[in-house]
Design a protein around this nucleic acid. Structure first.
Lengths: 206, 206
DNA sequence: CAAAGTATACCGGGTAGTGAATATACACAA
DNA sequence: TTGTGTATATTCACTACCCGGTATACTTTG
């Protein structure tokens, strides 16, 4: 589409993103990232202080778009809240069916950096997951779950991240539909009136 | 206790186990394992064809004891099936509260070897998780869940592996109690008579 | 000119894996 | 009992390579 020449820093981030997603963090060398970005290693180190910095910056760059995607999937799905949350799982299952899918980069980071407890990328990853959880919690709260909203959001997160882990291992996206079903049960158990969302815009179907 | 001199191969396996668990697979060098086992690297390569072989052997060695632990935690817990499954999560939470806890080695392997789809260790890891799932499925089946047994077992696995992933990231074991509560809801939703386990031996109720 | 950005070439250290020789244990013959 | 052959088990020293990071000098651009 638009081949806007994209600033060097962003080209590096983009190259790093593709490689990290595909092959993991530790196996991807700085040299490989620099080459993929069409830049020498020295240039990369001009824009990022270290590989660790680059990793954190990479996750930071993924934070917002990732959350936005979840919101879109939720909003575009039809039905009550249980079904709208199910929409997230269904879209995830769809993604997982393409060969290149490699699970959740934020969770994977916590595994790859397991021996570096204070790593800056871990802080970014935790913040991201918390944002998603808080967003879910808000939704349940607005739907009248009251005191159940927070624990319910946590349970959905467990199913969500569980899906990432299990599907990454077994390479069987149908687990995500199983997760969607579990989420639906947990949600409709605790939401009043089967939790149909109040019309936000104008014409929400009644 | 008993300082039986333990065959070399097992000493290597044990050393590898500790290091892999603590620091991950990729970051631990063969040299480090050999040193920890009190053995030269060359003798390590006498007992294992490659590091990849060693990884697979390590997971294989953990398969049986790990499952046995789950079974013990389940059996020792009091109450109906929901509570007995909850016992697994509670024991897990207890483990996770000690500093050295590092999540599930089987799941972590699938992350660390993400760019080696055919790696033998992945096959071992998948088989292990399947064994756990099948064991749960059998339990639910015997409790009368019928057609719901298999999907229910998968949902418990999602919560279980989700717990591993989430707690590893956030370092907050209370998620495991949230998972236990979700599991209890999903189970008692689908088990008849609140799912108290029938005596297995003679008197199976018809 | 000065600052930002890029290129070449390099360093010290760590990696998985190997070659060749040696040590140990045990079977069997004298 | 002693000597010898053989398979198992172990060691030391080594290769060939890859990694994150850097010193220095050059080029572009306001």
């Amino acid at each position: 589409m638009k081949d806007k020449p994209l600033p060097t820093r962003d080209r590096i981030l983009q190259a790093a993103g593709k490689l990290f997603q595909q092959d993991g963090i530790r196996t991807v060398s700085v040299d490989a990232i620099a080459e993929k970005a069409g830049v020498t290693k020295r240039t990369l180190y001009y824009h990022f202080r270290s590989k660790d910095d680059l990793i954190a910056a990479h996750l930071q760059a993924r934070d917002e778009p990732n959350l936005a995607l979840f919101k879109r999937w939720f909003n575009e799905a039809e039905g009550d809240i249980a079904e709208k949350v199910g929409g997230i799982f269904r879209h995830l299952a769809h993604s997982a069916r393409i060969a290149k899918w490699k699970g959740c980069g934020f969770l994977r980071t916590s595994v790859e950096l397991i021996n570096l407890p204070g790593h800056p990328a871990l802080i970014v990853a935790r913040a991201h997951k918390k944002r998603v959880e808080d967003w879910l919690s808000t939704i349940f709260m607005e739907a009248g779950a009251d005191n159940d909203a927070a624990p319910l959001a946590r349970q959905i997160m467990l199913l969500l991240d569980g899906s990432f882990a299990v599907v990454l291992l077994h390479r069987d996206p149908s687990y995500m539909e199983t997760a969607a079903e579990a989420a639906a049960r947990l949600i409709s158990d605790r939401l009043p009136v089967s939790g149909r969302l109040q019309p936000i815009v104008a014409s929400q179907t009644i």
